[in-house]
Amino acid sequence: MTRISLLRSLWRRTRREAEEDAEAGRSIVMPVQNVAAPLRQVLRRLVMALAVLGLTTLLVYVDREGYHDNSDSAVDFLDSAYYATVTLSTTGYGDITPVSDGARLTNIFLITPLRVLFLIILVGTTLEVLTERTRQQVRIHRWRSRMREHTVVVGYGTKGRHAIETLVGQGKPKDKIVVVDPQKKVVDAASSDGLVGVLGDATRSETLLRAELQRASQVVICTERDDTAALVTLTARQLNKSATIVVAVREDENVPLLRQSGANTVVTSSSSAGRLLGMSMMSPNVGTVLEDLLTYGNGLDVVERPVTKREAGNSPRDCADLVVAVVRGHRLLHFTDPEAATLHLADRVITIKQAAPPAAEG
């Protein structure tokens, strides 16, 4: 793939598609909170209002001798329900009135508080519906103001999900991960998983800016197509010069192009899977160990950590876990490199260690 083909791919986007992407890019989906569904909330409030209406009707019917109906003087159960309805709704036609002292006291101390409660239920439901959008905007504004040094994951498919699982397993909080994807159902799934989702085309600067990529420290790009990955990488590097960008591509021939576009690390999914298949065929045990190393939190894990004060000045072989490489400054030294024979306090080591046991569920 060449830069010309990338430009052609970008040129083929129609104006209608661009307008749809711009519309989608305006949507930010916050993590799902543990609140009742809107329909369930309305039904619950409706039941409460009917219960208040039923109680008021019962109070009036029990004390029906203290009321006067202008039409026929007598007050039956239907008249009691009618009086309760017009009273709680503050309509008050005046055709049925309390005339005895007991009925008037009941209206003062019981029916009036029930009327207030009835109005609170109705007004509360209305206000909740009216303020839901404002509440969502406040959540988004608050999220934007505190989002720093986070991770943006472009694509929430199989690769993106496993990348996030590994990040979370290594201690990355979910509120520090933002998912960008052009499919609404995928963004909703990310929101259900406790992640912030941005709906839109990641090749557009507007979408990545809504994900606060300009203030992110890490970017993981897991798109379905290599040309899309290259465009996203170019856009992300233009917005953020210092973030670490890791990209997954299908073909080895596209790796140099992705590196030129600004990617720090490029992982070739198809060739990596092919090599793992070949190793497993020649030696199933080697394939099992590699699969174990690639699965975080199970068996053996590959981790990068700083050198401790006790380890500084010693050989990597003296560490409690197995050191396979040393990171010194911007250089990666393999364990066979003579420069890695002595650890420095400012070094970082890449080690293989036993995975921590899963936390017991309480």
Rank of each mutant, 00 (worst) to 15 (best):
T2I: 10
W11D: 14
V187Y: 02
L213N: 01
L258H: 07
L127W: 11
S192Y: 08
A346G: 06
T244M: 06
E361M: 12
Y67D: 07
L333V: 09
T342V: 15
D318P: 03
L119S: 13
V180F: 00
F118I: 10
T125L: 13
L343E: 05
E253S: 14
R237A: 01
K159L: 14
S9I: 03
Q260W: 04
V326M: 06
V35H: 06
A216G: 09
L88V: 02
W11C: 12
V42M: 05
D175M: 00
T85M: 13
G157F: 00
S280K: 05
V29M: 11
A341Y: 10
L300M: 14
V327F: 07
V116K: 07
T131K: 08
T14I: 01
D337P: 14
L231Q: 13
V52A: 14
C222I: 03
V286D: 11
R8K: 15
T166F: 00
A81S: 14
R146G: 02
T158Y: 10
S280W: 02
R64G: 06
T203Y: 00
V178W: 02
R135V: 08
R215Q: 13
L208A: 02
I350P: 07
H68P: 01
T244C: 06
G329Y: 07
L58Y: 05
R104H: 10
